[in-house]
Design a protein around this nucleic acid. Structure first.
Lengths: 143, 143
DNA sequence: TTGAAATTGATAAACCGTCTCAAAAATGAT
DNA sequence: ATCATTTTTGAGACGGTTTATCAATTTCAA
């Protein structure tokens, strides 16, 4: 039994519902994806180059977008690139980013999330996803 | 006295500190920028084409990025383009974005901001700025 | 006014992500 | 297992956005 049986099941169910096929590449990419918090297509391309030198970048983009549709991943624009967050394993998280050294700290805060829901419903919105980034100086860079 | 004297002052101070020069183009772009909540470089290019047909797109990009460094603007990646938000005029605000029709609602929430400070200090960070975007469906698109 | 330094405009180039399409692989039926 | 159908893949072309280049122009302090 695979390490990622549950997520593999989610993927297969999505594939089944949409007349899509289960392929070696999709399995390979899902396995690699689930080991990360978040990753870019480019990073994954280099990581997987050793396992399968012929795996194309387009396939990685297509597959990561597929994961988003299947509810396994979430795309997030960060800098100029798109980060694909692994939401199946640890749930959603937000980011604290040091403008001095670039350090990134992940956090979760239920109270903030609850207030977000409040703001949304007050404006008639139903939240699908969100993005919260706090920029500042870490204790090291402040001195 | 110009309508945007305060922000012009902020810009001039930043220019002075960094051995940069005050130019006709920078003044023109700042005036146009401060009239907007948020704008893309391309939109501004077309807006200003009438006032100065020779103003180059590269200059607009350079200048909007300069405003970010001066603390007058904040860049935000939305879809494939970059939105430059005017943060000097109305203070910081966050966004509710409809994934159906693209409608953007601005909001402010002191409670959320307070909790952000809490999270940051718990991690030894001092916040300089932040970005919060809630994506979902507006009441119109939900039906 | 003069001269050093920064800025501009035009365009080339870089970059990210998507599209195209022929070849290959997966699935369901026989 | 084989076949026929449909989807997927890989490689590179492509499109849109942003940055880099560089000669000519402008700013600004002396």
């Amino acid at each position: 039994m695979s390490k990622h049986a549950k997520e593999m099941g989610v993927l297969k169910e999505h594939l089944g519902k949409h007349q899509l096929k289960f392929t070696r590449q999709r399995e390979l990419i899902l396995d690699a994806f689930l080991k990360q918090e978040h990753i870019t297509a480019e990073e994954m391309y280099h990581q997987l180059a050793r396992k399968d030198p012929h795996l194309g970048l387009a396939t990685i983009y297509r597959t990561l977008n597929l994961f988003c549709e299947a509810g396994l991943a979430q795309a997030r624009h960060f800098g100029t690139q798109t980060q694909y967050d692994n939401i199946s394993h640890k749930g959603h998280h937000d980011h604290l980013i040091c403008t001095g050294c670039g350090k990134i700290v992940e956090f979760e805060n239920c109270d903030i999330e609850r207030l977000q829901e409040e703001v949304a419903s007050r404006n008639g919105f139903t939240i699908q996803t969100h993005r919260l980034e706090l920029y500042g100086l870490c204790s090291h860079c402040r001195h």
